[in-house]
């Protein structure tokens, strides 16, 4: 089955603490949370950003709000104070993450409203 863009199935917010990018991701539909947990692994997020992420990504599951939290150390070219990036805070990291492609929710598991 064809893959989908994460943007069509999830919303996200990016924050920063020093050189650490913190990405919060939630399914648009709660019923897709198991799919998100299954597909959006720390490894996939790490791969998506490639060498830009210089340390291992850590993922937290926050099921009470159907959230996934990705804590990405050494991911912001030194952090907002000394970064030379156009977006020194890394505020746009959430939108860039939503460009990631994943197997369609129907392909991963059966969901009534996917």
């Amino acid at each position: 089955m064809s893959d989908v863009r994460l943007w069509d199935f999830a919303h996200a917010r990016a924050g920063d603490k020093g050189d650490t990018s913190i990405l919060s991701v939630f399914p648009l539909s709660d019923s897709n949370y198991p799919w998100l947990v299954h597909e959006l692994t720390a490894e996939r997020v790490q791969q998506h950003f490639g060498e830009e992420f210089r340390a291992e990504v850590r993922r937290f599951e926050v099921p009470n709000v159907h959230g996934l939290q990705f804590v990405c150390r050494q991911a912001l070219a030194g952090g907002v104070t000394t970064s030379l990036a156009l977006d020194a805070h890394g505020k746009s990291m959430s939108s860039r993450l939503l460009a990631l492609r994943l197997p369609h929710p129907r392909a991963a598991q059966a969901h009534p409203d996917s």
Partner: peptide
């Protein structure tokens, strides 16, 4: 949705 995005905003360990 707006509240949960802010709930996890910049939280390094929930």
């Amino acid at each position: 949705r707006t509240v949960r995005e802010q709930l996890l905003y910049e939280i390094g360990d929930p």
